[in-house]
Design a binder for these strands. Structure first.
Lengths: 163, 163
DNA sequence: CAAAAATCTACTAAATTGATAGATATTATA
DNA sequence: TATAATATCTATCAATTTAGTAGATTTTTG
């Protein structure tokens, strides 16, 4: 009898958020070149078209994207890629970055079982986790990510040439 | 007509993990004093009993807890509280700590849409996020959390006395 | 007016979360 | 050895979230 192994489904950032980042990076690469079609983004970044529509709409409502209807329309970045922070993107789609609501800056909620926030040790650690995470996420922009990719590409080439 | 506001449900650590941490802190506080009943933990920490059963079983399978059946039985910490890291607890219940599977140390999976891991900018940032998060989570033990609570309590008292 | 686009509304299947119910196995002790 | 006290195992469930799809509608340009 064969056994079936079920890979643990993983709960991190959602596909939706990952799609959002990929779409935004594409738009960032073509910043200033006018609107890009949903259909084009969908094809180039391998994102289901209808799903992408919803994502782009979210990002527009967050003030990150602009859109134009009709011939010659599409989506475009409203902000400069060096002003779009990864923290903002994650919050726009998945919501909070903190691991626990009582420590979230943008989605605060009191824990229902909380006796005293001030002296809660769990909350205290989770604040540190939040700060450590945010230091990276709100220190990284779309432009930074594109630059990382450039850097990684050239250092990869150097490595290959040495071999 | 009244409007109904639905608070955004929040996706961070699960209730299950939070319950696990609370149960473990309780057991840590009484480390070395012998087994504690599920029923007792359930009542003191306000955790649904049947749900708690499943959680404790998980933690036992992870080698964090031991159990004893029958009269005088219950659950107890196998490891010293200064050797139980928060990272291990989170992984035992919720799974991965990384935000993206291709960067997870314990639950690695290749992204299905990945062309080249080495030059992926998203992966590059997410590695940094993982490291920053882990620095805190794997640097904090059950004992540390209890100590934090003691410290927070005394500094709170000092503040109150000053007023 | 026609074509090209985004936008809106509604629906769906599968997985996950947060539980509960009830039967069973194990152990200490009277 | 019987019994009471425990943990353990198996099954089930409702609500929510995730990852989409379908189709009608609105806006804009030419």
């Amino acid at each position: 009898m064969e056994e079936i192994y079920q890979v643990k489904t993983i709960n991190m950032i959602s596909k939706k958020t990952k799609y959002a980042i990929k779409a935004l990076l594409h738009l960032a690469k073509h910043y200033g070149e006018g609107p890009i079609l949903i259909a084009h983004l969908s094809e180039k970044e391998k994102i289901p078209k209808k799903f992408l529509e919803a994502i782009l709409l979210d990002l527009r409502k967050q003030g990150i994207l602009g859109s134009k209807i009709g011939v010659g329309g599409g989506y475009y970045l409203i902000k400069n890629p060096k002003q779009v922070f990864l923290s903002q993107v994650l919050r726009s789609i998945d919501g909070p970055i903190a691991l626990i609501p009582c420590v979230s800056l943008n989605f605060y909620e009191r824990c229902d079982d909380c006796k005293d926030e001030i002296t809660c040790g769990i909350r205290n650690v989770m604040t540190e986790v939040r700060d450590a995470t945010l230091k990276v996420l709100s220190g990284t922009t779309l432009e930074d990510i594109l630059n990382r990719e450039k850097r990684l590409n050239t250092s990869k080439k150097r490595t290959i040439n040495k071999m």
